[in-house]
C-alpha cells in the first residue's frame, strides 16, 4: 500500500503556505488578529471558530486550507478518515490561562470554556466535528517535529480500517504558531494523475522546513 500526500498547509507564525503557494494576509503582530484574518481569507463561515483556543484555531485554519480546492472529503469516506496529530507544547498555551484564573484565591473564577481546551486532542475533535469525520484519532507529544514518528503512526493506522487521514504537526506556544497539516490517501491511478507527494520522512521534512 503506497501512501501519498495530496495536499498540505504550512503555517509558521504569520506565514501561510498552501501546496507551495504563499497566502498573502495583512501583517499582524497579534496572533488572534492573524487568526481572524485567516478565517476571513479562507471564508470559513463557522462562528464556533471564535470560541476556540489558539491551538484549535491554528489546526482548523490549517486543515481547512489543506482541504480547500480539492475533493478529498468527497472521494473519501468520513468513517474511514483518521486524524493523527502531534505537537510539543500539548495544550500548555491554554493551560496557562486556566492556571492564571485559579492562582489568586480572591479572584478565583475558572472558565469552563477555557478548561475544555486544556487537552491537546480537542483540536482533533474540532476538525472531526467541522468535517464530520468519525475515523480513528491519535494525539502524540514529542520534543520537536518528527517526520518518522508521524509516518509510523499513520502507517499503523492504515494497517487497520483507515483509508485516508488528516495528519500533521500543530503547535502553539508562547504566541508562536507552528503547524504542518497534510492529507494522506492511498495511491491510485486517478489520484496519481494530480500533483502528489510521496509520504516519506524526507518529503515531510522538506514541507516542514
Amino acid at each position: 500500500m503506497e501512501l501519498i500526500i495530496t495536499s498540505y498547509c504550512r503555517i509558521k507564525n504569520n506565514r501561510i503556505v498552501v501546496k507551495g503557494v504563499e497566502v498573502t494576509l495583512p501583517k499582524q503582530d497579534v496572533p488572534s488578529y492573524f487568526f481572524a484574518d485567516a478565517y476571513k481569507h479562507f471564508e470559513m463561515n463557522y462562528p464556533k471558530f471564535h470560541k476556540m483556543d489558539n491551538l484549535s484555531k491554528l489546526g482548523l485554519i490549517a486543515s481547512d486550507a489543506a482541504l480547500k480546492g480539492n475533493d478529498f472529503l468527497q472521494r473519501n469516506k468520513a468513517e474511514t478518515t483518521a486524524i493523527i496529530m502531534a505537537n510539543k507544547a500539548s495544550s500548555l498555551d491554554t493551560d496557562r490561562i486556566h492556571q492564571q484564573s485559579i492562582n489568586d484565591k480572591d479572584h478565583y473564577l475558572p472558565s469552563p470554556a477555557t478548561f475544555v481546551y486544556t487537552l491537546p486532542n480537542i483540536v482533533i475533535g474540532e476538525m472531526a466535528i467541522k468535517h464530520k469525520l468519525t475515523g480513528e484519532n491519535l494525539f502524540c507529544i514529542c520534543d520537536a517535529f518528527d517526520a518518522q514518528l508521524l509516518i509510523d503512526h499513520t502507517q499503523i493506522t492504515f494497517d487497520q480500517e483507515t483509508k485516508s487521514a488528516i495528519c500533521g504537526w500543530v503547535d502553539y506556544d508562547n504566541g508562536n504558531a507552528d503547524s504542518l497539516i497534510y492529507l494522506v490517501e492511498i495511491a491510485s491511478d486517478s489520484i496519481k494523475n494530480t500533483n502528489f507527494i510521496p509520504l516519506n520522512a524526507a518529503a515531510l521534512d522538506q514541507l516542514y522546513k
Binding site: P47, L109, S111, P112, A113, V116
Partner: peptide
C-alpha cells in the same frame, strides 16, 4: 446556537 459549555459560562458571567 448556544451549547452546554455556554450555559456554564453564563454562570461564570453572573459571578
Amino acid at each position: 446556537g448556544l451549547d452546554s459549555i455556554d450555559a456554564l459560562e453564563l454562570i461564570v458571567l453572573l459571578e
